[in-house]
Design a protein around this nucleic acid. Structure first.
Ligand SMILES: [Zn+2]
Ligand SMILES: [Zn+2]
Ligand SMILES: [Zn+2]
Ligand SMILES: [Zn+2]
Lengths: 144, 144
DNA sequence: TTCTTGTCGGTAATGTTATTACATTATTGT
DNA sequence: ACAATAATGTAATAACATTACCGACAAGAA
């Protein structure tokens, strides 16, 4: 069912920039990284991002105003992960790593809660901010 | 445990503006509504919002870049609702109404998922965007 | 082919959201 | 009074996002 047509040049450049980054990028960071490739204006980035998000290749992190490449398999045209319907993100404040968590339980519970209230959900955002396993052990006392 | 000292003038004005609104307000909308009360600059709003959020009197809606007054009871110093630890918001795209949903199940599940990954959660955002019961029945056919 | 339609792209300007920097005033504790 | 802390005022700037307008190009219909 997924639209399987090829990405445009701008879309490829943007998704590549995100894939090569180990942390989320803001639209303007992406723009800066693509200057050499001919990008001049924010709109070039935002237009590409819109399409990529539409296809599920990129996620927007609302609490960061930034974007990440989806880590799920998109190689074959259909079923690009996210079975649960909602994805939760665990975002590390220290290193910027982002984990995608696909959990049917939470999805089901949210759907139930929405149904109870006769709320028709179009889109759900779940973002946990904190410290990943790699960073959690470090010395976080402000003064060394 | 809650700090029970009085709100400052600016903080009172900001929280009142939010309470009087039936939809979330952006910082700049709040600023506009408080011009007559002497507000001149965004920072006055943001500083008050920071304190109000710290106290749990106001919530920030990340997917909207806007703010709402908390609907829970804050009249007595302690225990200002939000027992579940996380609050989910159901935000109507049509009328702007915001419902706060306090659900221990989701909180527990998210904590479990975080623990599994040794992720130390500091703050969690859950926002459902959609249509509330009042608006869901309306004619949503674009042309009418 | 020619015409239309739709998608994509380039550019500029503008709109919206949030912060930094610095000076001042009010409050609180001693 | 004095020092320390919190709150405020103002200006400037940074960061994020959209609108408007125009041109290029491909696909499909006449
Ligand atoms: Zn994904
Ligand atoms: Zn980390
Ligand atoms: Zn609340
Ligand atoms: Zn509604």
């Amino acid at each position: 069912m997924t639209d399987h047509s090829k990405l445009t040049r701008n879309q490829s450049l943007v998704v590549s920039a995100l894939r090569e980054s180990d942390a989320p990028l803001s639209a303007y960071m992406i723009l800066d990284r693509l200057r050499e490739d001919g990008f001049r204006a924010p709109l070039q980035v935002y237009r590409a991002l819109d399409k990529l998000i539409e296809r599920g290749l990129v996620h927007r992190l609302e609490s960061l105003n930034a974007f990440v490449a989806c880590r799920h398999d998109h190689s074959h045209g259909h079923s690009h992960g996210h079975q649960g319907g909602v994805v939760a993100f665990a975002i590390c404040e220290d290193c910027g790593s982002v984990a995608e968590i696909d959990d049917p339980t939470i999805n089901a519970r949210l759907m139930a809660l929405a149904t109870d209230r006769h709320f028709k959900t179009e889109k759900t955002t779940i973002e946990m901010r904190g410290h990943c396993s790699a960073c959690a052990g470090e010395s976080h006392t402000p003064q060394a």
